[in-house]
């Protein structure tokens, strides 16, 4: 019984503010005459009409597939190159300035550049996402591999672990928290790039559709698109955290233990 109560209380704590905010939005916008701020009730009815009438397949799915393709490629290339660069001091010191420069270029400026090279199709958008997402993944992997405990690596050598199993059992796990930090940064960049690559030049996709609505002054439709983008951003970050917490469960355990041992931490 007390368990039920504490569960109920938790649900209340989680839902209270969102419900209040939505209610305030609903009530204040109810009789809204403001053209740009239509009533929430209207936005929600439009939401169903707009997105569940085939647009999920024709616009949302292509966007998400492009994001998945670009992001996966960026992860593979970034982690692969990062391990290579991170394992060799000479190589790392040679390429680091170039990589830092590459990361410093704001990824959206790659959209016009890649449009020039790859045209307006899917490959351009995937390339944009790939070339924007790769930097945080690459640099974090380099940093993670570099920081692998030397004693660990030497021990592995002493026990004659092969390079391959050293990579698999020592280097990758040790670098994984850092790699995941890079992957997380890359995900939010990827969503941004997915949307703006479609705002520039596309005939389908979320970014394209939302801009079409805005240009046609279809305001409730536009709002429904903004909400959908929000839901997608939230959903993807939730998914990411699930994967991360599963992959890094051992690490969280260690960190918790360390914190318990010595509370001082920077």
């Amino acid at each position: 019984m007390t368990r039920m109560l504490s569960l109920l209380r938790q649900v209340f704590v989680v839902l209270a503010l969102p419900v209040v905010l939505l209610a305030v939005w609903w009530v204040t916008s109810a009789g809204s005459e403001n053209f740009y701020l239509p009533p929430l009730s209207e936005i929600l009815t439009t939401f169903g009409e707009v997105w569940f009438s085939g647009r999920i397949v024709s616009d949302v799915l292509p966007s998400l597939l492009r994001l998945a393709a670009g992001y996966t490629l960026a992860a593979l290339v970034g982690v692969g190159l990062g391990i290579a660069v991170g394992s060799s001091k000479a190589l790392r010191e040679t390429v680091e300035p170039v990589l830092e420069f590459g990361r410093a270029i704001p990824p959206p400026v790659l959209v016009p550049v890649l449009m020039l090279i790859a045209g307006h199709g899917n490959s351009m958008k995937i390339l944009v996402i790939l070339s924007g997402c790769i930097w945080p993944i690459l640099l974090n992997t380099v940093e993670g591999v570099r920081a692998v405990d030397e004693v660990l690596v030497d021990t592995g050598r002493t026990f004659r672990m092969r390079a391959r199993s050293r990579l698999h059992h020592l280097v990758l796990p040790a670098a994984s928290p850092q790699i995941f930090a890079g992957l997380r940064q890359a995900l939010s960049l990827g969503i941004i790039l997915m949307v703006i690559s479609e705002m520039f030049a596309a005939s389908s996709g979320l970014g394209f559709t939302i801009v079409q609505f805005q240009r046609g002054f279809a305001i409730p439709e536009m709002w429904s698109g903004i909400i959908l983008l929000g839901i997608i951003g939230f959903g993807l970050s939730l998914l990411f955290r699930l994967v991360e917490s599963r992959a890094l469960r051992w690490y969280e355990g260690i960190r918790l233990a360390e914190r318990g041992g010595s509370p001082s931490k920077t």
């Binding site: 903004i226 939230f234 993807l236």
Partner: peptide, 12 residues
């Protein structure tokens, strides 16, 4: 609110 991509606000 945090993971909502800010580019979603562009049309607005």
């Amino acid at each position: 609110l945090r993971p909502i991509p800010s580019v979603a606000l562009i049309p607005l």
